[in-house]
Design a protein around this nucleic acid. Structure first.
Length: 417
RNA sequence: GGAGGGGUUGCCGAGUGGUUAAAGGCAGCAGACUGUAAAUCUGCCCGCGUCAGCGUUCGUUGGUUCGAAUCCAACCCCCUCCA
């Protein structure tokens, strides 16, 4: 299946985006013609997306770059129901306001990756609350519900796993797959969307939409899923010391985002370059052949490219420079995450234990103490030997800052107001 | 409806009256080694603390006891078998 004619599928294939596809030949023909609208749905469960969604976002970007039309579906309606896929427990119920706020945050992420507008190749964003909120129960059951057999619904993995694991599945969540299937049909009617993409866990939901639309409208739709992206070491991707790797600046600084990519495991560098940057494949092939410590250059390029896509070139350069000064020169660099403290506090002396907590380098004072005891805390690159140590005016550099570190990689600047 | 089994600290999973903040594993954090990698080894891993201790924790609520995650009662939830 490596002989795709369309730029879109060929690129996705070469870069490792494709896990399953309902009808590769048919989709290839459509994509080759150009102007194909394709969508991916995103739930509004948080006010930012994280790197877990980045594969899907990159796919939409490639869709646009290869002359087709990306459609971002915000799950304003489905988020009220909750996707049971891959979960043992029901999702927390969100209010309409929270969902609205979350969608606003997510919108910002997409404006970075896609170009929105009114033109044929411009990306558009739609909200399924626009049609789901207005569904009338009985007509919906008669028109849509009759096409779903419980027998088949029970066989879908999202449902089956819940049942097998002896975890409750509410009727509310049970409806999720029907609503998502309906979304696909609705989007094919409204926008001529013939393609839905998603993670491999969405396969069942996507296929449902395809079948529903074929039965009701007699129209042929296509589905494409990405593989689950894990680290070479087997762990789930997207965790750092401080939590999820968010795409929004408000949630994660450009420096931390850059660092996340910089710390990629050797074995993942090539794969990540293909998925998360737009570098030419021959260039990537060259980079991933680098051995030993040279592969660090490839990691920096990965970090630069990925950060540029998500945060812009200026932010990426700044992050790279901050990292260079911090790690390669060992100097105190502006641009590190910063916390501010009041001048009188410093004069009185702030316990390092408290600072570690305030800086987010330790979750509790106890943890901060243990960090010091384990010789992992440093102030201005000197190990903090005493749990009772405090930061005093004398510890500040000329411009009124001090560098506080947990381990060799996590640094925070303390600045006096 | 009847008979059994079970709900333990982020997850898995020991523990059946005090020596238990609770074995072990995973995840996580730090140290060593390195290349801001992996693997490996070591330490840490509920909160507060002037490190003596104090406070909270084993589904929920009561009770027995000098003392309970461990015994009793009621309740909630889950599983298995029978009808």
């Amino acid at each position: 299946m490596s002989s795709f004619r369309s730029d879109f599928l060929r690129t996705l294939h070469e870069r490792g985006f494709i896990h399953q596809c309902t009808d590769p030949e048919g989709l290839d023909a459509l994509a080759a013609a150009g102007g194909l609208p394709g969508y991916i749905g995103f739930d509004a469960t948080a006010d930012s997306l994280h790197v877990g969604s980045l594969v899907q976002i990159m796919m939409l970007r490639w869709l646009q770059k290869t002359g087709n039309k990306p459609v971002v579906l915000m799950g304003g309606g489905t988020t009220k129901v909750g996707d049971p896929s891959g979960r043992d427990e029901s999702r927390r119920m969100l209010t309409d306001e929270q969902i609205g706020q979350n969608m606003a945050g997510i919108r910002k992420v997409f404006s970075q990756f896609l170009s929105f507008g009114e033109g044929a190749a411009d990306a558009v964003m739609v909200n399924n609350a626009d049609w789901l909120d207005r569904i009338e129960y009985i007509p919906f059951l008669r028109d849509v519900g009759r096409h779903f057999t419980i027998n088949r619904m029970l066989s879908f993995e999202s449902v089956r796993l819940r049942l097998e694991r002896e975890q409750p599945l509410t009727f509310l969540e049970f409806n999720y797959m029907i609503l998502q299937a309906y979304d696909f049909m609705e989007l094919s009617r409204r926008l001529g969307c013939q393609l839905q993409m998603g993670g491999s866990d969405q396969w069942g939901n996507i296929v449902n939409g395809i079948e529903l639309t074929r039965r009701i409208d007699g129209r042929e739709l296509f589905g494409l899923t990405t593989p689950l992206i894990t680290l070479a070491s087997g762990a789930k991707m997207g965790k750092t010391a401080s939590g999820a790797v968010w795409l929004n600046t408000e949630r994660l600084s450009a420096y931390d985002y850059w660092q996340f990519w910089r710390n990629t495991e050797d074995a993942d560098v090539g794969r990540f370059l293909r998925l998360f940057t737009e570098l030419p494949l021959d260039e990537i092939a060259r980079l991933e052949r680098l051995g030993g410590s040279e592969i660090n250059e490839a990691k920096k390029i990965l970090a630069n490219e990925a950060t540029t896509l998500c945060r812009g070139a200026a932010a990426a350069e700044e992050a790279a420079e901050t990292a260079r000064r911090t790690f390669e020169e060992g100097s105190l660099a502006e641009g590190l995450p910063t916390i501010e403290v009041a001048a009188p506090e410093i004069e009185a002396g702030i316990p390092v234990v408290d600072l570690l907590v305030r800086a987010g380098l330790a979750a509790s004072k106890g943890e901060a103490r243990r960090l010091i005891r384990g010789n992992g805390a440093r102030l201005n690159d000197a190990a903090v030997a005493d749990e009772a140590a405090a930061l005093r005016t004398a510890d500040l550099t000329g411009d009124g800052t001090a560098k506080l570190s947990a381990g060799r990689k996590r640094h925070v600047l303390v600045k006096v107001l």
